[in-house]
Simulated assay, not measured.
Amino acid sequence: MSTIHDFKVDDWLRRLLPGRCAFCLAACESTAPWCQACHLALPWNLPACPACAEPQPAGSRARRCGRCLQRAPAFDTARVPLRYEGELRGLMQGFKFQASPRAGSLMLALLEDALRDKPCPQALLAVPLHPRRARQRGFDQARWLAERLSARLDIPLVVAQRRRDTPSQRGLDRKRRRGNLRAAFRVETALPPEVALLDDVMTTGATLDALARACHQAGAERVEAWAVARTPLP
């Protein structure tokens, strides 16, 4: 859970180097915490499948990938602005495994900037960790991001539950990931028609797909999947 101290840290980080890029320390011409050169150099997820955000070859036209044509995900669209590679990969590992507030604040700013001028849903849900896993890690990165994004975008935050502590998804293919997560989530609150789900990294989309199914059962009609970065598939 976040504390008042966490939000004070966010404010402190924003004031730490005013007018300086958080990546290269060059002067910034805008109020964003990055310079234009560093922003352009980030691994943007373009083009990408509009349904699942799977990265597509450079120069191609963004269209539904073959997997989504064969089996559409339970969510309607995915908004994942970056690819999990290069400098962003190191930034996200610092956030996920070391709970770096600097890395988390930068990721939050990048996601907020990518969602600017997009229609806001009526509720936001973070992909939940099982309580036992949360105690082991001591840090729930998706919840950390969701609490702050909810406040900044003025979207109500709804808490979902992980019904069972599923084995790690690492090393599993898409089909086995889906089976691993079947009926893994529960949403006890009645949901409004339009909701968004938030995770830090999206790999195959199986976790967000399983949570989207639970959201539909709780009354949601349209579900968007949000994440900071998408893992490029082989």
Rank of each mutant, 00 (worst) to 15 (best):
L115W: 06
I4E: 08
G19Y: 09
S100Q: 12
P50S: 07
T3N: 02
Q122R: 13
G86F: 05
A53I: 02
D11T: 09
R135E: 10
A146R: 06
A99L: 10
S2H: 03
L211S: 04
C21W: 06
P47K: 07
R83A: 06
L172S: 03
A196R: 01
P121F: 00
P43K: 05
A72E: 13
L233H: 13
L69A: 13
V9K: 13
Q161R: 09
R174H: 15
C65K: 08
W34I: 01
E188N: 11
D6F: 03
A22Y: 09
L145F: 10
A142K: 01
E85S: 11
A210G: 11
P119D: 06
A206H: 01
A62E: 07
V9C: 12
P121G: 05
P73F: 00
I4A: 13
K175G: 08
D117M: 01
S168P: 12
A134M: 11
W226D: 04
D117P: 00
L111P: 01
Q169K: 01
A126F: 02
C24Y: 11
M202I: 03
S2W: 01
F95S: 04
F95N: 02
P73E: 03
L108W: 10
R170E: 14
P128S: 10
L111D: 06
R15S: 13
T31K: 09
R135S: 10
A51F: 03
A134E: 13
M202S: 05
P131A: 02
A41V: 07
A114L: 08
I4C: 05
D113F: 07
W44G: 09
K96P: 13
A26T: 15
A109R: 07
T204C: 13
E87P: 11
L191E: 04
W12M: 15
P119C: 02
P57G: 13
P33V: 05
D165L: 10
P128I: 12
V159D: 05
R174S: 11
L110F: 03
T77L: 11
L149F: 02
E224Q: 14
Q169W: 04
C65L: 13
P55H: 08
C120V: 14
L181N: 02
A114H: 06
A184R: 02
L191S: 03
P234E: 14
L149H: 04
E194Y: 12
R222Q: 14
G138P: 11
A62H: 13
P121D: 05
R61W: 10
Q98C: 05
T77K: 11
G205V: 02
L198Q: 06
A134P: 00
M92I: 15
G66N: 15
D117Y: 00
R163K: 01
R162V: 03
R133K: 14
G179E: 14
W44A: 15
W44L: 12
T31P: 00
L145Q: 08
A78I: 03
L233N: 15
E54H: 11
W226L: 06
T189Q: 12
A78E: 09
L124S: 00
A220G: 05
A210I: 06
P101R: 00
L124G: 04
Q36K: 12
V158F: 14
P119T: 08
